[in-house]
Design a protein around this nucleic acid. Structure first.
Lengths: 98, 98
DNA sequence: TTGGAATATCGGGAAAATACGATATAAATT
DNA sequence: AATTTATATCGTATTTTCCCGATATTCCAA
């Protein structure tokens, strides 16, 4: 875990918003058919955000590179979900190392 | 605590470095006379960083606005120290809210 | 095998962040 | 009062971030 990249990934309102949505996807993406354990696909997040597809794709990519989310490709869709272990690790880091 | 401002404040290598130094000032500023509970003055941090005085002053200011450090003026000197409560709060936030 | 749908990548313009030198302010000393 | 020391603030050049539209890639379905 690269601290700096993680903090940079968290330094953007759009990305923080997405992380909130992904924390309880059943509350924010009720229309989704796929089980939430798989994640939420890019298009749903994009629609909810009101931003362009490329912007959301890029923001998800930034968070993935930082390790905050993971993705799985299923057919035409890419499902993103939070990497909760990363948040636990970050919490410990902030509490004791930084 | 404004999450976004806190994460922005942590998204810079110079500021992360300073926070590390301030975590155990007795290890990094052995020449200091003032008790470490007071904090470390700007000049010492500046010398150690190798950056300019204005840059370090500004970086300390960013962290203070985010609530990560506090400062006390004593005569000509301004002593900065970590606000450990802010880190504990941030740790909990990362663990449960974000 | 072609067309369409979902996502990723590219290139760029605007805005924000960064670190600098110069200058201002504040406090202590002479 | 004038000088020196420590810190803060200002103006600026450069770099980085952000979001966009356009295009490329990947996969599925007709």
């Amino acid at each position: 875990m690269n601290h700096l990249d993680v903090f940079k990934a968290l330094s953007n309102p759009t990305r923080l918003q997405i992380l909130t949505w992904l924390k309880t996807p059943e509350a924010y993406f009720p229309e989704q058919q796929e089980p939430f354990a798989t994640g939420v696909c890019v298009g749903q997040i994009q629609k909810k955000s009101g931003m362009t597809q490329s912007t959301i794709s890029e923001n998800l990519s930034v968070m993935q590179r930082a390790g905050l989310v993971t993705s799985i490709r299923k057919g035409q869709w890419t499902y993103y979900k939070r990497n909760e272990a990363a948040f636990e690790q970050l919490s410990l880091l902030v509490a004791s190392e930084i």
